[in-house]
Design a protein around this nucleic acid. Structure first.
Lengths: 169, 169
DNA sequence: CTTGGAATGTCAACAACGCTGACATAACCT
DNA sequence: AGGTTATGTCAGCGTTGTTGACATTCCAAG
């Protein structure tokens, strides 16, 4: 299965898109994602939270005051599934839910002090690993890393990803 | 939380390891992994299989004749969890389990013709996306991509990943 | 040859987190 | 005002992970 492009852009590029190269990438993603989630998973294990709680906390931290609907579309889960996670986080005092003033159907979510503390622990752990990987690979590798990741997203994900960027850049 | 390093290593590198840069990488991983699994998930939905079946099929294809124990350690799940998946795959005629000749306790797993057909469908879908991403990003980005992913793995994962490589390179 | 340990498999129970269905309430629109 | 839409909650179910207990089968060491 050759890729059928014209002249290669550089000499080391002859085998660039072989199935074997692609398979490497697939397996690298599989193992790397396990590493990526390992540290937060360890922290959350035993406190009766899981990855779903981590994701909710992450994106509430990222966009304070966000609504349940917005979070649903970012996390790509049903409102029922999200609700279960939010219920426990609210009951445990990590997340605050305020009824909207303009539209009273909406619930605006934000982290409490305690919630921010857990977010710190989790994101610190993940950043330590990320920083290590980035340092080891170097800035140019990191640029390539992000290029490939973005190219792997569907258009909808990409726009969600970029929407998060805009707020903080 | 600033990272507290001293002088940066190169000029374009001033913001290289800021929390914001790291957070970008974290979120890129999150969204990209969703894309990465989207196509196989779609194929498997409705045929009463899930991601666990995909993973088993992938690694059995990758290492035909592998044992249950070996698969357990690669997939990082308990034998009970793996067994449930294997049982359905064997019952459905996608996977073959042969009792070991040297050690009859072992079960050596391999794909049947039908199993190979499903593996093709799944990995084709995943490769299409991967190929698209690789082409769009270019060979140098791909090199960086894999460098960062490998640096993100724990030593144990890395050696499992590399062990797979050795057979085929 | 017996016994201990390793590899495999099964049953049962449970947790995390997806899903659908049913339903209440708030807001919007005609 | 009344019907529709948007939003959120509760209840129940399925997949896939977990532990624990236990049977079986086999290798290997004493």
């Amino acid at each position: 299965m050759s890729d059928g492009r014209g002249a290669p852009q550089s000499g080391e590029n002859l085998l660039f898109l072989t199935d074997e190269q692609l398979r490497k990438g697939i397996e690298a993603m599989f193992f790397a994602y396990r590493g990526f989630t390992a540290d937060p998973d360890r922290i959350l294990a035993g406190m009766s939270y899981g990855r779903a709680h981590h994701r909710a906390i992450h994106f509430i931290h990222r966009s304070p005051g966000t609504t349940v609907s917005n979070l649903m579309s970012i996390l790509n889960v049903t409102k029922q599934s999200l609700n279960r996670v939010l219920r426990t986080l609210i009951a445990d005092g990590l997340v605050e839910s305020r009824i909207g003033t303009r539209d009273k159907r909406e619930r605006h979510l934000s982290l409490t002090e305690e919630g921010r503390a857990l977010e710190q622990r989790l994101s610190d752990a993940q950043r330590v690993r990320m920083r290590h990987a980035y340092r080891q690979a170097g800035p140019e590798a990191v640029a390539g890393f992000r290029q490939v990741l973005e190219a792997m997203m569907d258009p909808e994900m990409l726009s969600q990803y970029k929407a998060l960027r805009e707020k903080t850049e």
